[in-house]
Amino acid sequence: PDFTLHWNGITIHFKGIDEEQFRHLRELLDRGVSLEELEELAKELIK
């Protein structure tokens, strides 16, 4: 499924991740993950 997340004025689209992965990403963003960390995470998910 696809998810869209609005965070700090940025709209991020996640394609092909499951709800569990999306929930994990939201928790990280709510905790204050940096954009660099988010990019690293995205690379991991894409593999």
Rank of each mutant, 00 (worst) to 15 (best):
P1F: 14
P1R: 12
D2Y: 10
D2S: 12
D2N: 11
F3M: 03
T4N: 04
T4Q: 02
T4C: 08
L5S: 00
L5G: 00
L5F: 04
L5C: 03
L5E: 00
H6E: 14
H6N: 12
H6C: 03
W7L: 13
W7Y: 09
W7D: 02
W7P: 00
N8L: 04
N8Q: 10
N8G: 07
N8K: 06
G9F: 01
G9K: 01
I10L: 08
I10D: 02
I10C: 07
I10T: 08
T11K: 07
T11G: 01
I12V: 10
I12T: 01
I12E: 01
H13F: 05
H13M: 08
F14L: 15
F14T: 04
F14Y: 02
K15S: 15
K15T: 15
K15N: 15
G16M: 02
G16T: 04
G16C: 04
G16L: 03
I17S: 03
I17H: 02
I17E: 04
I17N: 02
I17G: 03
D18N: 13
D18I: 03
D18S: 13
D18R: 03
E19W: 05
E19N: 06
E19T: 05
E19A: 08
E20G: 10
E20S: 09
E20D: 14
Q21N: 09
Q21M: 10
Q21P: 01
Q21F: 11
Q21E: 08
F22V: 06
F22E: 04
R23E: 13
R23V: 14
R23K: 15
H24N: 10
L25I: 10
L25D: 00
L25K: 00
L25M: 06
R26Q: 13
R26D: 02
E27L: 10
E27V: 08
E27I: 08
E27D: 15
E27R: 09
L28Q: 08
L28K: 05
L28V: 07
L29P: 00
L29F: 14
L29W: 05
D30T: 10
D30K: 11
R31H: 11
R31P: 02
R31V: 10
R31D: 07
R31G: 10
R31K: 14
R31W: 09
G32K: 03
V33A: 14
V33C: 09
V33N: 05
V33Q: 04
V33H: 10
S34L: 07
S34M: 06
S34W: 07
S34C: 04
L35H: 04
E36L: 12
E36V: 12
E37K: 12
E37Q: 13
E37W: 12
E37A: 12
L38G: 01
L38D: 00
E39Q: 14
E39H: 13
E39V: 14
E39N: 11
E39L: 15
E40N: 11
E40Q: 12
E40R: 15
E40I: 14
E40C: 06
L41V: 11
L41C: 03
L41N: 02
A42Y: 15
A42V: 13
A42M: 12
K43S: 08
E44M: 09
L45K: 05
L45T: 07
I46R: 07
I46F: 03
I46Y: 01
I46H: 11
K47E: 11
K47N: 11
K47T: 12
K47M: 08
